[in-house]
Design a protein around this nucleic acid. Structure first.
Lengths: 251, 251
DNA sequence: CAGTGGTCTAGACCACCAT
DNA sequence: TGGTGGTCTAGACCACTGG
């Protein structure tokens, strides 16, 4: 049925990888159909004269990629792809732009130290009125076009002046690391749609009430305390998110 | 330094899992800091009297979860968390609603067989004018409120009447599977913001030009042919996407 | 060169499932 | 009960890094 010369034991390419790709190909070509069982580990092990541990490692790759599903006592089966769980990756949104060959430029509009106010009290859940925050707002532009407007707050615990370096790493986690003694270890982003306010519209050069992306980001330290918060407005006509699901080829 | 009684070899919980959680805890508590090396595999192996393969399996878990980074010849190091790559999961969007305890209801507005037109020619990249498509449009609502409006096209190759079952699985992959001989194996979704058209606004009961989510979905068969396409409009004031990154606890 | 992680083996025992 | 996948071992050899 199958030739056992398909795995090159002398290759620099690991055997588990060769085997995984071999099985993946059979599934993609429909030689193994969704719902069907793939050969047992012992069978594959014997057929290719490969240790069972190595076979398991190969199958583990397929399990991870979601093409196959192992069931103890029964067998390993080709997955019926579920296509309703799409994942959108948001590489700081601006990578989209940079990948288009255009390079995004960040222009600082304002940066200052502020004290606690109502918004900050809500977002950071602190009550000590002496806490200092670094406030900054900036515009992201590319090819002479303004694309996004961002407002950021971070805890400010280092007595260090605000340098040009702020511009070099304008990401929120970067600001936290640079201007506080807190280590940012986790983040939450909430994406919504909104209508551009007068201010936002004038900064971005769009018509008021135009649809825009509104992204709120919160940065946490290891104790899950909020150490940074930002609100970003992205032009709706210049940004989109694309996501894939199922047996998409990744090579 | 560390007690070697922390791994219970007789437990039903696998040793590699216990070890992975033990290391994860040390990292979360800051006993192992970002940038630092974790003990070598041989060291851990000796300290707990565990086979190195088992230690590797434990570390592999941490590598997968992104907390640690292995470098051949050098060591394994605690990751400096990158927090700008947030991932939004979109469980067919309506799961958001269902998790709130409210149950979403889909109401079919129209369903019919259509022939090739300009839109379909572009989306499906077919030229044979005899190809038939199943067209349907529907409204998703919850708690007496209309939330989303969806328009779907799928290839129609089964000579089967359109049944009530269409309503039972109104997802695009489901429609493809039910009404064509094609197997949907991969999907692409593009998320944008838009202003509601007059039609969309009247169907959803919102003001025209309100900001809305616009999601286009394309379904592919194993040969990467388009077998389904849909366009969905979601009320901007009722939906949002939330994503996490970094060392978020998942237990 | 010594030390690290990466691959692989040939067994062993177990938990689970079907019959 | 026999067959499946899940865990674990005690080695082995390799590729890569650094001094």
């Amino acid at each position: 049925m199958m030739n056992n010369r398909l795995i090159d034991k002398t290759s620099v390419i690991p055997m588990y990888y060769q085997l995984a790709k071999l099985l993946e190909g059979q599934i993609r070509r429909g030689e193994l159909k969704p719902g069907e069982a793939i050969p047992t580990e012992t069978e594959i092990s014997a057929r290719f004269a490969i240790s069972r541990m190595t076979v398991r490692r190969a199958i583990a790759e397929l399990v991870t990629s979601g093409m196959v599903n192992a069931q103890q006592g029964k067998g390993t089966f080709v997955t019926m792809p579920k296509l309703d769980n799409i994942v959108f990756e948001l590489n700081d949104f601006n990578h989209n732009i940079q990948q288009s060959g255009i390079l995004a430029k960040t222009t600082l509009l304002e940066a200052k130290i502020v004290r606690l106010n109502e918004l900050l009290q809500e977002k950071f859940a602190v009550s000590n009125a002496n806490v200092k925050f670094l406030f900054s707002r900036m515009v992201v532009s590319a090819a002479e076009e303004r694309l996004a407007y961002e407002t950021k707050y971070t805890l400010y615990s280092k007595s260090k002046p605000i340098l040009e370096s702020d511009l070099q790493d304008p990401t929120l986690p970067g600001l936290v690391a640079a201007h506080s003694n807190f280590l940012p270890v986790s983040a939450k982003k909430v994406l919504q749609v909104a209508a551009a306010t007068e201010l936002e519209a004038s900064i971005l050069g769009i018509v008021p009430n135009s649809p825009v992306f509104l992204i709120e980001q919160t940065i946490y330290d290891p104790e899950h305390r909020t150490v940074g918060w930002s609100k970003s407005i992205y032009r709706g006509d210049r940004y989109k998110l694309t996501g894939y699901d199922g047996w998409y080829k990744k090579d």
